[in-house]
């Protein structure tokens, strides 16, 4: 297949047929991807030098974000990113995996195909549109629901303090809607990949439909489902527009989900064009580097998990 060492005459022949040329051209294109990724890492690293040099690792643990005095710390943003993603996963995992179980195990194939198609359309909706709906639809709904949420969960510090609508909680809810289609479509495929013998054996032993699903199919599909969750998490961490529009954009660390917060992606989106001075821009680029590293690690792990899950396929 490849262009290993070949006798000269054969190489000339293949050159005439264009094989070596085609190999070279396509190989260069493929290598461009590696080069590009390396270039992205280099640019992020190189352009954040000023901030890295001044703050070092303290950048990650300092909660001061003070452009006026050129003091920057990433903690409020890392906190906001983690909290909103956690809320999104808490809502998204049960709903997504539940729906995936229904679509893979219960629904007739044709219905399942049609519903999955519609849910995948949800994944195609641009994030700025989720943001638009977040501001004008979700935030009013949450304000309306606020007394009910307080009545049930108000005793925890998580739902205390004043609520203006825009908040970490609102951002998490919008994000959950955005990641659910991913969890559903990948989990469904992983569940479908579990060999049918497993279900039949469980049912033959007298298990109910649910028992065969819960005790037999899901453990088999567990790795793949975890993979889908991590892919969704990586997406949630990098989500920018919808979060920027509803999170409230306040770089403070507060325990309450009702409080406005900020996220890494959101602060880059909001402040990058206004950043005056080398240190400010450099700090924002370092935030980009942190986000890049975070998503690459999570994505890398998730891809391996999904690949392992799909290898179960018979």
């Amino acid at each position: 297949m490849g262009a290993g060492p070949k006798p000269a005459s054969s190489f000339l022949q293949r050159l005439k047929g264009g094989d070596e040329v085609a190999y070279l051209i396509t190989c260069i294109a493929a290598s461009t991807i590696l080069a590009l990724t390396a270039l992205i890492v280099f640019e992020l690293y190189h352009n954040s030098a000023a901030s890295r040099g001044k703050f070092g690792f303290a950048f990650l643990f300092s909660s001061t974000w003070d452009p006026v005095n050129d003091q920057y710390g990433a903690l409020p943003f890392i906190y906001g990113t983690v909290v909103t993603s956690a809320v999104a996963l808490l809502i998204g995992i049960p709903l997504g995996v539940g729906a995936a179980i229904f679509l893979a195990e219960m629904a007739p194939p044709k219905v399942s195909e049609a519903l999955t198609f519609m849910i995948e359309l949800l994944a195609a909706v641009p994030s700025v549109i989720f943001g638009l709906l977040g501001i004008f639809v979700l935030v009013p709904i949450l304000k309306w629901l606020e007394p009910a949420i307080r009545a049930v969960l108000g005793w925890t510090p998580l739902f205390s303090g004043p609520f203006y609508g825009v908040s970490l909680f609102a951002a998490g809810v919008v994000m959950s809607v955005m990641i659910i289609p991913f969890i559903i479509s990948i989990s469904r495929e992983v569940i479908l990949a579990v060999p049918n013998d497993q279900r039949e054996a469980a049912l033959a032993l007298g298990a109910t439909r649910w028992e065969s699903t819960w005790d037999v199919v899901l453990p088999n599909a567990f790795r793949g489902i975890m993979g889908s969750v991590f892919l969704a998490l990586a997406r949630a961490l990098g989500e920018t527009m919808a979060v920027t529009m509803v999170v409230g954009n306040d770089p403070k660390i507060k325990a309450s989900l009702f409080a406005p917060g900020y996220s890494i992606a959101a602060v880059i989106a909001n402040e990058f064009t206004e950043a005056t001075g080398e240190m400010y821009t450099s700090a924002l680029i370092e935030l980009g580097l942190v986000l890049f590293a975070l998503t690459v690690v999570i994505n890398g792990g998730a891809r391996l998990l999904v690949a392992a899950g799909e290898r179960n396929k018979t």
């Binding site: 920018t240 999570i298 891809r303």
Partner: peptide, 23 residues
Amino acid sequence: LIRYVTDLLNGVPSIVMGIFAYT
């Protein structure tokens, strides 16, 4: 390697791509 890196590139947040084009 190329497949893996392609998938990773696919997962890079769009805002980071913006920073890249900016630099």
